[in-house]
């Protein structure tokens, strides 16, 4: 049904990340913060672990529907 309706795969899986240049990243959906820091932010996002490295990172908004992180993003690592 998903295929017949031509729904984007990211919505299908519920895994959706938006990156606005190197200054802002938005993750939609349930996110858990594993480690909170100004230079490293470790998140659990669905079955993935995401590590965001950068400078002066901070959580601008955090709700059960997603998280918005701002600052200077240098690296995003999935594991």
């Amino acid at each position: 049904m998903v295929k017949s309706l031509d729904v984007p795969t990211e919505i299908q899986s519920g895994f959706y990340i938006e990156l606005y240049s190197e200054k802002e990243i938005v993750l939609t959906g349930r996110v858990d913060v594993i480690e909170l820091g100004e230079s490293v932010l470790k998140l659990r996002y669905f079955e993935h672990r995401i590590e965001i490295c950068g400078e002066k990172l901070f959580i601008a908004a955090y709700t059960p529907d997603g998280i918005r992180i701002c600052g200077k993003i240098i690296k995003i690592e999935f594991s």
Binding site: L36, F58, Y62, P64
Partner: peptide, 12 residues
């Protein structure tokens, strides 16, 4: 966050 308590500007 899970229990609906909004924490603004969290930092450590």
């Amino acid at each position: 966050i899970k229990n609906g308590i909004e924490i603004m500007n969290p930092r450590k």
